[in-house]
Amino acid sequence: MHLQVSSVCKSFGYGPKTKPVLDAVSFDLHSGQFLALVGSSGSGKSTMMRLIAGLDRPSSGEIRLDGELIRGPGADRGMVFQKYSLYPWLTAAQNVAFGMRLQGRPKAEVRERTAYFLEVVGLVDSARLLPRELSGGMQQRVAIARALAAEPKVLLLDEPFGALDLQIRESMQDFLHRLWMQTGLTALLITHDLEEALLLAQQVHILAPRPGRIVRSVNADLDRSSLAHLRVSQPFLALREELASCLRSLDSTLTA
């Protein structure tokens, strides 16, 4: 799997009201990699994600998946939104099965894979509950299971934990990290939370706002055997501080 984003620009509106949102964004993502895009809100992160998902078209530049130009949404790019994306009339299990049923997979296979992915996200006991009966964290785990069950080549996560309480967010980060180790999935995470990006991703791109562009890329080669240790380890804190000051300087050039 190879996702290629090359010189992607995106602007909204026409004529004098044109608003550039992304400016010449390029990056690559390979099988098994965990990549994060970090930027303040309004820096065009969600826009970038929607372009990759095929829900929107770039104004210029191109996005290719395994050499194929992306022309629209497809099951090869699974997406997890920040919130409100579970089908409220379906149980947790039915939500997980939803994509597979859309794809017309055989019933037995759907049942088997649903059970498997509920197990993976630790929600076997909640299989029959409706979304409104699940906590925010559980809902996001169902959304992730639903995306994974459809067998995407890459998982697109748009601030998946942004709406959760701090404590739940940490446990969800641990969960996502374990999931990545277990399943070897390829993931693109979008977040405004620098710590989250550094904890989870091997590579982090910093996005400057107005228009969104990558101003810094770092390889975060950290020891991720225990996230609890990583959170307080010296190399992690140093890297976080360095990038945080980078993000701050981007903000100050804006306000100055």
């Binding site: 998902a53 949404p73 099951a75 919130k83 994306s85 009339w89 995306a147 459809a150």
Partner: peptide, 24 residues
Amino acid sequence: ELVETALTLGGRGLPILTRVVAPF
């Protein structure tokens, strides 16, 4: 989000109408 999620799960026109829009 509900419609777009279905799109990224491989859904198209009519199935999205019957399985997402109609029940909602």
